[in-house]
Design a protein around this nucleic acid. Structure first.
Lengths: 116, 116
DNA sequence: GTAATATATGAACAGTTATTCATATATTAA
DNA sequence: TTAATATATGAATAACTGTTCATATATTAC
């Protein structure tokens, strides 16, 4: 890999992209949040929560799997502020954190051309 | 984990979420595409390509790292139809596959409250 | 044809992560 | 207080994934 035969213009674009590149911290932050969504067991939880808030028992009912497994995934989603929780008596009730989450899901599904 | 003390309504919501849950294949498809984006070295490539198409040499310049590493990441992005490529003489020129990709990036950055 | 350049790929290794099992914490009911 | 229920957590393991190194393929120039 040495020089490539492209026009000056492209070299300038590359330089600009390099100059505008966000910091490692910002990149890592965005990636962590996207990664939290990008996993089948967690995506199922998010899709279930689109209908409204649900307690852990009902989330397990909706997505399948074990209580422990779901709880671990909920923690990851919550740590990344994809979902939020509140206590309601004996239960913890979870819901989507904000509209961005819903919008990303819609877009991702649109890109996959699937009806989710 | 047995019954929970929520209203009937919530149980019905859980049932509805379960009934509306997409197939494992659809879930896996959406996850694979989101996961392709959710990685620092790949996200950098996508951010660089927002400015316009670039050949591999310039992508390496823009994001850093080795030629081999970048090439591996480009393959993952291309396999998931996040980016597309065309040959231009000796070079392979890459660009973002469609507007969905850009929109997801914008949303993810908005959620992270970072200026990307 | 050969040489040089641009890009891709296979294997190996290190680091990460999802799941399971057992157990802990917190709330409610008695 | 004790028992029961709802949820969370730590450790262990198996599977996955990003990176590196060496090498392969494809195009252009000679």
């Amino acid at each position: 890999m040495t020089e490539c035969n492209h026009e000056e213009e492209h070299a300038r674009e590359a330089e600009r992209a390099r100059a505008n590149m966000p910091s490692e911290e910002e990149i890592a932050q965005v990636c962590a949040e996207l990664k939290a969504i990008s996993e089948p067991s967690r995506l199922k939880i998010l899709l279930a929560l689109r209908q409204g808030e649900l307690c852990v028992y009902h989330i397990v009912q909706a997505v399948g799997g074990t209580q422990s497994g779901v709880s671990h995934q909920l923690r990851i989603l919550r740590d990344n502020r994809i979902i939020k929780s509140r206590r309601d008596g004996q239960n913890i009730v979870y819901s989507l954190a904000d509209a961005h989450v819903v919008a990303v899901l819609e877009l991702a599904c649109a890109h996959s051309k699937c009806e989710v």
